[in-house]
Nucleic acid binder design. Structure first.
Ligand SMILES: [Mn+2]
Ligand SMILES: [Mn+2]
Ligand SMILES: [Zn+2]
Ligand SMILES: [Zn+2]
Lengths: 157, 157
DNA sequence: TTGACAATGATACTGAGTCTCAATATCTTC
DNA sequence: GAAGATATTGAGACTCAGTATCATTGTCAA
């Protein structure tokens, strides 16, 4: 994510708060700066840790309160990767339809976009009498190619 | 799921246990009978409740111990629908590649299969140097068509 | 029948996420 | 800039799905 995109996402979120008559606080600034200062997926607990480094007054409660605002604004997506915690993705501001492929051997995650996929989902949904709102495709795989090249390091090693 | 398929799935699971030198107990029988006696998606707690009706000695611990065996055998799939509990699906014995479309308004869930989808996922994964192991597509939608026909009852009603 | 050991239930525990509430900060109006 | 209305805060109690522990019981091969 380019510097300009980060600033744009941040501005959009502050506008979102204003539209909903919500207040811009020091804690929310620290959280938003953290979220749009990375392109990594993160957990709520990671976000708490990182945001505390910017402003030690940020509490767990505020992080958990701010995450739904971030997802509601459409700038961050909440994802389930089958773990017992949720994963948050700040890359939707830029790439609102991307999906993920996960290597079960080494936990590598690769993002991808596909217009053909989006179109097919629309087609299937329409055929069943639905209108798509959101979608989430997770492919669990093994990175055979990379394993051959020695780039897939099994966890057990 | 036809009666014969249910018996087949149950037999497969008992074989699976035998292959792994695991024992066939009364509690496991009650759980398996329950799982393959329905084609509904269920939670672990629901399974506990239903299995207890068949054999009141079934405990929560045994249900939670048996579920990983069922998923490992490939006859049941574990799914995340964005709730804070997992959903289990006994229909994979019959339809090992189906996916789900969920109406956010009325919580209706429709299952679908698509060879084109499977093929596209394979194509995308191969292109990125991965070999697909499992996949999960969730489409959140609103059932416009059914709403028009009065079949989509909003939760608030 | 016996013995090795897999499986069991009860229950304590874990940990992500939610709720509560008194104290505080923001923002608007004057 | 002060005041007032009210949104937001942190601390910590709480919830609840899922896991771990352990003494007891059940399975099954020999
Ligand atoms: Mn992503
Ligand atoms: Mn299903
Ligand atoms: Zn890998
Ligand atoms: Zn509906």
């Amino acid at each position: 994510m380019a510097e300009s995109d980060r600033i744009a996402a941040k501005t959009k979120f502050l506008d979102f708060l204003e539209e909903k008559n919500l207040r811009i606080t020091a804690q929310r600034r620290a959280i938003v700066d953290t979220v749009f200062g990375t392109d990594q997926h993160f957990t709520a607990e990671q976000l708490l840790e990182w945001a505390k480094e910017k402003d030690s007054s940020v509490s767990r409660a505020t992080v958990y309160r701010t995450l739904p605002l971030l997802t509601e604004s459409g700038l961050v997506h909440e994802m389930d990767f089958g773990k017992d915690y949720k994963i948050y993705d700040p890359n939707y501001a830029d790439h609102p339809n991307h999906n993920h492929i996960i290597c079960d051997d080494c936990d590598k995650i690769v993002e991808f976009e596909s217009d053909r996929l989006d179109q097919l989902e629309d087609e299937i949904s329409t055929g069943l009498g639905f209108k798509v709102k959101t979608q989430q495709l997770r492919i669990n795989a093994s990175c055979e190619e990379m394993k051959r090249l020695g780039e897939c390091k099994n966890k057990g090693n």
